[in-house]
Simulated scan of single mutants.
Amino acid sequence: MPPRNDHELARDFAESAGALLVQVRGRTFADASARKGAGDAESHRFLSERLGELCPDDAVLSEEGADDAARLDADRVWIVDPLDGTREFSEPYRTDWAVHVALWERGELAAGAVAIPAEGLTLHTGEAPALPAAVDAPVRLAVSRSRPPALVQDLAAQLGGELVPMGSAGVKAMAVVRGQADAYVHGGGQYEWDSAAPVAVARAAGLHTSRLDGTPLRYNQPDPWLPDLLICRPELADRLLAAIAEMPREAAPSRPSHGGAH
């Protein structure tokens, strides 16, 4: 039976692209760069074709596609990251990479799915994940395993918290949804495709989502660059926002050519 609604479409797109990426990952490549390139290209091609077939009237904003200004006048825009965490994807046996598929509709995120294909897991807004109970322990902050930002290290020190290293942005956000971390704080800048689907799923699970100053996250903007992001358990939002407000302002982050800052 074909998917019946936008939530199921998002789930189906993300799961199917993830299954394709698992196949791509199993091939033999000359080096990690070639594996990354093949993953990005084939997942993007697959999602573009499926969206064109099933949602021909909707616009698309994808990390791997050319940005078409027509999306700004569209009522519905799919915001897609065909492969989030290319470094992790290219490394054998790592599971912390993802596929993001979100639908923006008339000003709001309306549906979303984050697939973690190496775990055989997809979290989506059609079946909102149940947020695990809070644990009586130091605040756990999901952070990049390769380049933990000073902001999050300083925040952990201020709160007496712990850093939980992992790969892609989607995996970090889903770690909060799954109860593996308490917050994902990112001040280094991202593109909309890095966070749209994770934010949609996090909201469905009842998590707090905002900019680091507490203002709303906006999607399908003329400039798809988002300077910062907070996803956290709702009972921690005020504490984290207050602590972040007291910290020194960092210089505006430089933009990568693609959404690689996680």
Rank of each mutant, 00 (worst) to 15 (best):
Q221M: 10
E63V: 00
Y93R: 10
S62P: 08
S254I: 00
G188S: 08
A183N: 04
A202I: 01
S146Q: 06
A102C: 09
A128M: 07
R145Q: 13
T122C: 15
A70H: 02
P227L: 09
L155H: 07
A200I: 00
R203N: 05
A251V: 02
A245C: 03
A30P: 04
D182M: 00
E88S: 10
D12F: 11
H44T: 01
G39Q: 06
G126F: 10
L240P: 03
R50Q: 14
Y93I: 07
P132L: 06
L21N: 05
P92R: 02
G120Q: 12
G120K: 06
L229M: 05
G206K: 04
A156N: 14
A10N: 03
P149N: 06
N5P: 11
A38Y: 04
G167A: 14
G161S: 13
P92A: 03
K172T: 02
A197C: 04
D182A: 00
P224Q: 02
A252L: 01
H44M: 04
V77H: 02
P165C: 11
S210L: 15
A200L: 13
W78H: 05
E246L: 08
L163C: 12
T28Q: 12
L240Q: 01
A134S: 01
A133H: 09
P256I: 01
V101G: 13
L51Q: 07
M247G: 15
V80E: 09
C232Y: 06
V135M: 15
